Amino acid sequence: WKITIYDQENFQGKRMEFTSSCPNVSERSFDNVRSLKVESGAWIGYEHTSFCGQQFILERGEYPRWDAWSGSNAYHIERLMSFRPICSA
């Protein structure tokens, strides 16, 4: 599993790669995730830290803005603060 997060939209700004769970992006000096690329595996992104709040399934691909992973939710969530890989047995 591999995911790359960015602190600006369209894959700009600070970037960081992960191959395992991140319970709080702010502990990695990110205020928020504004864009991301899922390089391999599937991940679950969460609205809040500690894997809480609205969940987003993140499959392999590029997500240049928050609405790319938020989709058409009843209330739009511009925040992604934690994530972890989906492990299959």
Results as ranks from 00 to 15, higher is better:
I86K: 13
P64G: 06
I3C: 05
E17F: 07
A68L: 06
E59S: 14
E39K: 13
L58V: 04
Q8C: 07
N10S: 08
G53S: 01
A42C: 14
R84W: 02
I3T: 06
A42M: 12
R79K: 13
C87V: 13
Q55R: 11
S82I: 01
R79W: 05
S35M: 00
Q8P: 01
H76A: 13
R60G: 08
N73I: 06
G71M: 12
D31P: 08
L58P: 00
T4Q: 07
G53L: 02
S21L: 07
D7N: 08
Q55N: 09
A68W: 06
W1E: 11
N73C: 15
W43M: 03
G61A: 03
K14C: 06
D67C: 11
N32T: 12
R15N: 14
W66K: 15
A42F: 07
S50N: 13
W69F: 14
S29D: 11
E78V: 13
E62C: 10
C87S: 15
G45Y: 03
W69N: 07
P85N: 04
D7L: 01
F30P: 01
G61M: 00
E27Q: 14
D67T: 15
N73W: 05
K37Y: 04
V38H: 03
E62W: 06
P23G: 07
C52I: 10
T49A: 15
S72N: 15
G53C: 04
E39D: 11
D67W: 07
K37L: 05
N24G: 04
W43T: 00
F51S: 02
N32Y: 13
L58C: 03
C22P: 01
S70T: 14
Y6Q: 00
H48L: 11
E59W: 06
G53K: 01
A74I: 12
Y63A: 01
E27C: 08
E39I: 12
K14E: 08
V25L: 08
S70P: 06
Q12G: 09
R28W: 09
N10P: 00
G13M: 00
S21D: 13
P85D: 00
C87P: 15
R60E: 15
G45T: 03
R65E: 06
G53W: 02
G61Y: 02
A68I: 07
I77E: 10
S26D: 11
F11V: 00
I3W: 02
G71I: 10
G53N: 02
R65F: 06
P64M: 04
Q8L: 06
C87R: 12
M81T: 05
S72D: 15
Y63G: 01
K37R: 12
P85E: 04
E27L: 06
E78K: 12
G45K: 03
